[in-house]
Amino acid sequence: MIAGINIYEILTLTSILFFIGLYGFFTRENLITVLLSIELILNASALNFVLINTYLYPDLLQGAIFTIFIIALAAAETALAIAIIINLYKLIYSVEVKDTETMKY
C-alpha cells in the first residue's frame, strides 16, 4: 500500500507501459529494439501482478511469486531471442526486421 496513490492511477501507468511496449513491438525496425519492447510488455504485466497483490490481497504472496517467475521467464526468453538474433546476423549480416521477410507466399 503506497500512501497517496490510488490503484487506478497505478493501473493507468501499467496500461500505458503495456501499450508503449506493444506499439514498439509493432513499429520498431530493429530486432533488438523489438526485443526491448517485449521486455516492456512483460514488465507491465509483472508490475500489475505485484500491485494487485499488494492492493487487493495484502496477506497473500502469489502475485509476488508470479512476478519472480515472469522475471525468470523474461531472462530465459531474452537469452533465446538474443541467440536467434546473433545467428540471424551471422546468416544475413543484418538485424533489421525488413530483411527477415523472406518467409512469405
Binding site: F25, F26, T27, V97, T100, E101, K104, Y105
Partner: peptide, 14 residues
C-alpha cells in the same frame, strides 16, 4: 488473398 501472408512477423502479431 495470398498477400495476407506477407512474411512480416509484426503484421502477424498485429
Amino acid at each position: 488473398i495470398k498477400g495476407w501472408q506477407s512474411g512480416k512477423f509484426q503484421d502477424y502479431a498485429m
